[in-house]
Design a protein around this nucleic acid. Structure first.
Lengths: 157, 157
DNA sequence: TAAATATAGTCAACTTAATTGACTTTATTC
DNA sequence: GAATAAAGTCAATTAAGTTGACTATATTTA
């Protein structure tokens, strides 16, 4: 891709590219730290698991995917050592998915990396502008979606 | 997803959600206009095809996917009537992928819909802030990636 | 309280969009 | 003219999701 093309970026391309720029760097850094088996989709799932764990159905609703898909993700993350399934004390149908120590570690690493990237971006555009950017994006996401949080809204991290 | 969780959105989630908000509305609107067979990935491909067509390999490089994947996308888009393959006049190995009339129509529709969404967003945050937002995102994407446009940067639309 | 229904999770088969590897046809290079 | 490179396609595989069918446990209801 050359820079020529780049000046003609519309809002959609701009949001798409800034998101992938951020997420690519995050995952490159996580890989270097030995968390190469974590994929973008896992991050937002972890966010819902913290702090008290969550059931498969809760996670499915949060992520906007089926409970079967969550079950598969949980299998993968359990095998890789990031989560555990605990049977609920009173309702034996439920299995609470919780983070293992390794799961907590990768979340901490993620926070630090994102904070560092944000700091670098602030060096680039300034703290006030970063503040505005976040405010404006929050407003846009919030007001556009109001109460119709469609299941197609599937954030990562 | 409830609004509680929403206030804790970090930069990554914010970019991800604002992007999917935009892209969801775009595709809902395109569906209503009878372009339901167009998927997010196709838009950016069209952008590279305009104005003079492009070969499979050029598209593959632009999109950061393999030429085989481009070939499949082209099959699909050809069947749906959005593109055509033309054999190059001098180099008979090459096939130039060009937009059909229907392909041009969907691009025009896309422009109009995006412009309208952007207008609505401007009503929401103001024209100056929208200008800043675009400027800042452009800066971030541009400066972060400099000349290392990794193939993992795969924009849509 | 027993029977019917609902809920949580999993298994299996399928879909979609990508991948890698092998191949054909046409151009270029030596 | 022979060897190599390039453009595209075919086939098999992978990854991440889907739908549908099933088991085990809870809840509701007659």
């Amino acid at each position: 891709m050359n820079n020529q093309l780049f000046s003609e970026l519309d809002l959609a391309a701009l949001l798409s590219l800034s998101f992938s720029t951020l997420i690519n760097e995050l995952h490159d850094r996580l890989s270097e730290l030995g968390y190469g088996d974590i994929k973008p989709a896992h991050g937002f799932m972890f966010k819902r698991i913290i702090p008290n764990g969550a059931t498969g159905i809760e996670l499915a609703e949060y992520l906007g995917i089926t409970k079967q898909a969550v079950s598969k993700m949980a299998d993968y993350l359990e095998k890789s050592g990031y989560v555990m399934r605990q049977t609920h004390s009173t309702d034996k149908r439920e299995k609470i998915i919780v983070l293992t120590e390794r799961g907590c570690l990768v979340m901490k690493a993620k926070e630090e990396i994102l904070a560092e990237i944000e700091r670098r971006w602030i060096d680039n555009i300034g703290a006030e502008r970063m503040q505005m950017l976040k405010e404006d994006l929050t407003k846009l996401v919030y007001e556009t979606n109001e109460d119709k949080w469609s299941s197609k809204l599937r954030p990562v991290w």
